[in-house]
Design a protein around this nucleic acid. Structure first.
Lengths: 107, 107
DNA sequence: TTTATATATTGCAATATTACGATAATAAAT
DNA sequence: ATTTATTATCGTAATATTGCAATATATAAA
């Protein structure tokens, strides 16, 4: 089948899983780390830095945007992609809340 | 292609992405939450609780085991799956470390 | 206006994931 | 030993993801 049965889970479970899923690719982890390490955050740098094709990087950026982690501004003829700090905190808090409320109680 | 180019990323990036990836499915989120909410953690309950086929649940449990989050003990004719609290903390710390060191610095 | 540069989108091939039925394996109960 | 109950594995179908070349789009520079 290949299709996830989202309808049998709660919105919260689906949202949480979606955050995890978007972060669940090394290229997207690397993109976030690289943007964070630079003062200027130009997409073209990412292509050279990460070593994937431009189209592939663009796709990964789109996914990061889809959960609001990144926002891009046009800066001259290039793009300035930045981490949305507010959203970043919200997601970090939600993940921590999941970790803190989910604990072992047997074995 | 469909294959992730893990070789161009660091081990740390790949590991981090792998943790996120395993948690990036609502069924696996739900499984962890359910186990955490019960005193007994029997796999068969999960099948009824979550609403996926037994084979599917078994597959999801296997993935959670693959990053060490769960360990199962044979308990009579059923299995007792439990969260590995130590591993749970290690992973939570690694994810938080990623969140805390990755910050916006432009725009 | 043309050219060069930067990013997004499209189309496609290869691989991965999700889900389930069928079946195997294991252990308790009869 | 047979039956019953529980979990794992296998095989398969459907969908998703990854990655890239080619192309489209948009802006700056010449």
């Amino acid at each position: 089948m290949g299709i996830t049965k989202t309808q049998i889970f709660t919105d919260k479970q689906n949202d949480l899983a979606q955050f995890f899923k978007v972060l669940g690719h090394p290229a997207r982890v690397a993109i976030l780390q690289y943007i964070s390490s630079q003062n200027a955050c130009i997409c073209n740098d990412l292509v050279e830095e990460i070593g994937l094709a431009q189209a592939t990087i663009s796709q990964h950026l789109k996914e990061l945007k889809s959960i609001g982690l990144l926002h891009g501004e046009i800066e001259g003829k290039s793009m300035c992609y930045c981490i949305d700090v507010g959203r970043w905190s919200v997601i970090q808090n939600q993940l921590n809340s999941f970790f803190n409320t989910t604990k072992s109680n047997c074995c």
